[in-house]
């Protein structure tokens, strides 16, 4: 591992990994708590029906549907966690940018929910591929997202999309809410110097749509120093 990458991991990578796993484990605990209460409720209803039959089967069915829903929720969370934990397996790899955005937003869902901000991601019509160090790309996307969350009022919605503009992969952020001025500069500064060396990002604001645009490079070589 080069000195630069080591420094980058120390600077923020470990913190990012910690914040995301904490967010995810909290979500899983909530799923387990819901399953636990609903399983308990079903036991209560069965015990009550032994004294006062009949057993309300429709009720039981609706409870099992709730439990199944939570199993699917926990399964998705764990699948995301697994992809995240393997994001450092290769130094660089081809990544579907839209999937990376979706993953970064899902991992930090608890954090955005705590700020009462909805992050909406609309997948592009055509896949947008980048070659990047996957973990650091996720970290960069989260830095962008968190910067936007910091600049938005509670209760608002943030739309994030991926596209290709002039042959370059682009992440665009848009919100109807009032975003603090100068946010694009703040977000670039938040992303550490080393992260930006690894994945250089061009930031712009579309004055007509007020979209924040992050242009990513499409490296043809290994960007790791």
């Amino acid at each position: 591992m080069t000195q630069s990458v080591e420094k980058l991991i120390q600077e923020g990578g470990v913190g990012y990994f910690g914040a995301m796993t904490a967010s995810v484990s909290h979500e899983i605990k909530n799923c387990l708590a819901i399953m636990n209460e609903n399983a308990g409720l079903m036991t209560d209803l069965i015990l009550l029906s032994q004294q006062r039959p009949p057993l309300d089967l429709e009720r039981i069915q609706s409870i099992t549907e709730r439990i199944t829903g939570q199993i699917h929720r926990a399964d998705t969370i764990l699948k995301n966690l697994n992809v995240f934990s393997h994001s450092m397996d290769k130094p660089v790899q081809p990544v579907d940018l839209s999937q990376a955005v979706q993953l970064a937003a899902s991992l930090g869902r608890r954090i955005s929910e705590n700020r009462r901000i909805t992050v909406q991601h609309q997948p592009p019509e055509k896949p947008v591929e980048v070659t990047a160090p996957f973990f650091f790309l996720l970290y960069l996307i989260w830095t962008i997202l968190e910067g936007a969350l910091d600049a938005m009022p509670s209760g608002s919605t943030l739309d994030i999309t991926c596209s290709e503009k002039k042959g370059l992969p682009v992440i665009s952020l848009f919100s109807k809410a009032v975003i603090k001025p100068g946010i694009e500069k703040a977000m670039t500064l938040t992303a550490s110097q080393h992260l930006l060396t690894l994945i250089p990002v061009e930031v712009a604001v579309d004055s007509t749509t007020t979209e924040l645009i992050f242009g990513l490079p499409r490296p043809t070589h290994n960007p790791l120093p």
Partner: peptide, 9 residues
């Protein structure tokens, strides 16, 4: 969904 089930119990 958590408080609904817990409250009922």
């Amino acid at each position: 969904e958590f408080i609904d089930a817990l409250a009922e119990r």
